[in-house]
Amino acid sequence: MPAEPPIDSPRRLFEAYELLAAGSTRPIAGGTDVMVAITGELGPIPERMLDLSRLEELRGISLEQGALLLGARATYTEIRRSTVCREHLPALVEAAATIGAAQIQNRGTIGGNLANASPAGDTLPVLLAADAVILVGGQRGEREIPVADFFLDYRKTALAPDELILQVQVPLPRGRSLRFRKVGTRRAQAISKVVMALAWQDLGSAGWKDVRVALGSVAATPIRARATEAVLEGAGPTPEVADRAAETLAGELQPIDDVRSTAEYRRAVSARILHRLLRDAGGW
């Protein structure tokens, strides 16, 4: 039976901000990560908890001014069922569907996936590839953090201790394509060995622009593979480019051996799934 630290359940955002400002407290939304952490076996038990479940401001999924707005408490199930997500960001729907199984998807939230900042967080490469912006807030006010600047180190983020994740904003540029692929440990309830998102805008004869290659489980944080992006930027998905991109990616990544996979596998498979995504995009 895990520890039962005291918990506050504010109904309003300013109350939550006050509690956060008052000192060490750990937010909990769906609890799928936090409830596992409070056994004390996997690290220190939080002194105090902050229940986000009554903050209605953090809910909802909507489309506004060309951007998809996801409340921090949007669950994976809500994302999977959301018609705007399905229409405008199907890769995120795909990612949400690979997380846990029904029980986890019904509880886990996109804000939690970000805050937990696991290198294996399955939605995170999609958000990186989509140039998402994270709206955070606290007593000091609100600010926007591009997701590319959010992950600082292993499970460390740019979120200050007195701030909450409020919303994820995903710009939806016209003509952008976004693909997702997860290689997990099994077919459900799986943590990824490699997870990848690839985004681009096709300018026809001018090739691809704004190419994003984002990966999870291959570094201490979710990352973008910038050298590989550079190979693809301005190019098209030809066999030669795909070969070069795959080789560049394999050279660029520094994955590790761990309980789930090996460095060698992660490097090779990252290259191969990128190659496959490019092959599919090129139609060859």
Partner: peptide
Amino acid sequence: EGECGACSVLLDGQVVDSCLVPICQ
């Protein structure tokens, strides 16, 4: 830790792992 599902219950009709749900929620 939400892996096995033996503790599954319905919460407002949705299946959840009751080991991951604090009672305040």
